[in-house]
Design a protein around this nucleic acid. Structure first.
Lengths: 229, 229, 229, 229
DNA sequence: CATGAATGAGCATTCATTCAT
DNA sequence: CATGAATGAATGCTCATTCAT
């Protein structure tokens, strides 16, 4: 998959390490989401993990390690869920359309976690940050691959030099659904968001002849609401 | 402009308040950018401001107030610089193209500040956060206005219900240049980024007949480099 | 006198720093003597100093700083008290005899402090340790000076190359009264100790013709006691 | 030899106890010398001993027990090595001269261990400390015995009441070579130190008629160096 | 208005020791 | 006998905020 930062543990049994770290991550995600990294104490993490503070530090060397574990876990979950939905059926254009939809479903579901990474990863030590960004890039690569397939099979017209950028655009599409939810989710439902963004992205917006009507149309009230801010 | 949160001060003279708060913000931006909100102490802010801690607390009620002041200041600067470049000359499509370019210039210049808002605004008390988000929405409104003008003058084909979303897309376009710089700025120069993103956005990408070649084409090496990662 | 390590303080008024540090040292000496450096907590030091823990750290940067302050204070006291008793009256031999006597009085009085330095100075950071050893050497120099005067005025016969060593011997003479008190003070009174050590040192022991009888003779019971262990 | 503190063990086999404790002591000496008693953790002791912490605590009841074991071991080694070199050949004066020389050789070799006892024995529980001091006294007795023999055979002129003191002086002579090495070993080689101290002690210093020249004379450069500080 | 000394709750982390397996 | 995971009291230190001068 992707190289992971090795976090030393005083405990020898790898099985146990895995189990305990899962407890820790499960507890920490919730706490970090709720109160932020700096607002959460190690004791809270320990308590919620069902570990003593001493035990916590047997599986982790610092609070920052917990943050890394959390970020990595979120990314892994994200990637796993995303890859699970990928199909090679049909041309790449259809694959992309489907992948975007699935990606946005996942992002909608993991909003808090996405936010967490975006707001707290700066607290990671440099080395750990690199690993996290590496993972981020890898996930971006999923879309880059589809885009390249689309260029090859002719279903997508895109300058090869713009592939990376486009892939990042798609990723950001999902992230903004989370970190601008205070605005977006007031105006659009997830389905609307998916529909419109996909259209814009797949360039159907400006080529009405290729557009299927149900796709681009936004509900009336929505159109009104938008003007209201 | 936009309603601002009133921050009480023990000092009467409004002129003085204004001056001192400017000192405070100037000092705090640098510190927050460099060390983050939590990594900066009030003493450091005071020292860099040329004030005593006692004096600092005469102009501000809490460290969070400083953060609010900083965020508000960044947003105000951003908006001012952006509005200064807006022209009504030509059709809206050309206005938009120009606005995006100018916006990206500003965002490139203010990368650190943009990052600051994105990573630290979660530390604001709820009320202050609302003011900050309000400002954000207002800036988004600048682009929404242009888009609406484009619909009216026919230079932009866009479903009215998608205006808000498109405006957010544009804003995020600029923000991602900052918060994904670890990837984007490794692959693209600012000019390339502006060119490609504008093309994608203005839908020239998929309609090569409308495209001006120099605009969509990315330098060969870039194309290679992209595949390389 | 002797260069001192500068210990930064958050407080500006030098008078206040002096006062507070004196409080701190006064409290810490007792605590360190009683419970050792590691056995004493910073909170105890603060409490006994009449300061809050926060205030303590305004005058000191670490617990080790307190230790340095304590060591330096002890050395300074020692040196001051020692120098106060020095006389140039008579020949150097008589000066030395008197100086040793006074030195041992002081050492007897400061036993606990001497012990403290000997047992805890290893906990000092390297730099601070150098300052402490420098001070120690300077005190040794007091006796070296007298010895040199003795060589010059002919009242002491000593190879110049042995001056330093002899000076260290004298210093250690006083220190061992403290750190071997569990044995020495069971067998000898201070006066006896002074008398015998001075005799041995001034070489009267083996030259009975120069010896004044009352000086070398140790009380009968003492002689017995010695054999008893 | 000397009564030793009994340290309870959960293990029955005395052979095994002996072996394991030797492992423990060997590891702990190095660690204590390097990092001090308080700076060494029980886990480190266990690891270096090749034992698990669990096992460590089967052979020892506390960290302080390890310290006692270490101190006792050092003292035992010291005494053994010292006694091995003792000869009854010649008069006591010559025995003493030789014993001092051998003693200083051993002390030079065991500097770190000597320092260890001097700096850390204060961390021993009272009872253990008494045993350690007892051993120290016993070693001192070695020299007391020689001194007494010297009084009897007339080769040493010494007030019987000063025997104990003189014995302590000799012991301290060796110890100071270790704990004042920062000064002494900068000025003198071991051989010079032995020569001069022996001379001073054997009272040849002030009676040049009895002195053998090579013995009291300190190398010219040394003499200079001494004045230089 | 300005100063800066004082406060003390709060935090991350350590480590000797235990005990179930 | 051996193992090593678990415990949690204890510690050094920080820092936002206050308030007497």
């Amino acid at each position: 998959m992707c190289p992971k930062k090795h976090i030393p543990s005083a405990v020898k049994d790898p099985k146990l390490i895995e189990t305990r770290r899962q407890q820790i991550v499960a507890a920490a995600v919730n706490l970090f989401v709720e109160k932020g990294f700096h607002g959460t104490t190690t004791r809270e993490i320990a308590r919620e993990s069902g570990l003593s503070i001493g035990a916590l530090y047997e599986y982790v060397e610092s609070k920052e390690d917990v943050l890394y574990l959390v970020c990595d876990n979120i990314h892994t979950t994200l990637e796993t869920r995303l890859r699970r939905t990928l199909t090679e059926a049909g041309n790449a254009r259809e694959s992309l359309r489907s992948a975007i939809r699935q990606y946005l479903y996942v992002m909608d579901d993991m909003q808090d976690d996405v936010l967490l990474i975006y707001q707290e990863s700066k607290s990671l030590p440099l080395e750990a940050l690199h690993f996290v960004l590496g993972k981020e890039e890898q996930i971006t690569g999923i879309f880059a691959d589809i885009l390249r397939r689309g260029i090859e099979d002719g279903s997508l017209r895109l300058d090869p030099g713009a592939v990376t950028l486009m892939a990042h655009n798609i990723i950001v599409l999902g992230q903004m659904w989370a970190f601008r939810r205070w605005a977006l989710q007031r105006h659009y439902t997830l389905e609307e968001y998916i529909r419109v963004q996909t259209s814009l992205l797949l360039n159907e917006l400006m080529s009405p002849d290729e557009t299927d009507d149900t796709d681009t149309q936004v509900k009336k009230e929505e159109g009104e609401a938008v003007r209201g801010n």
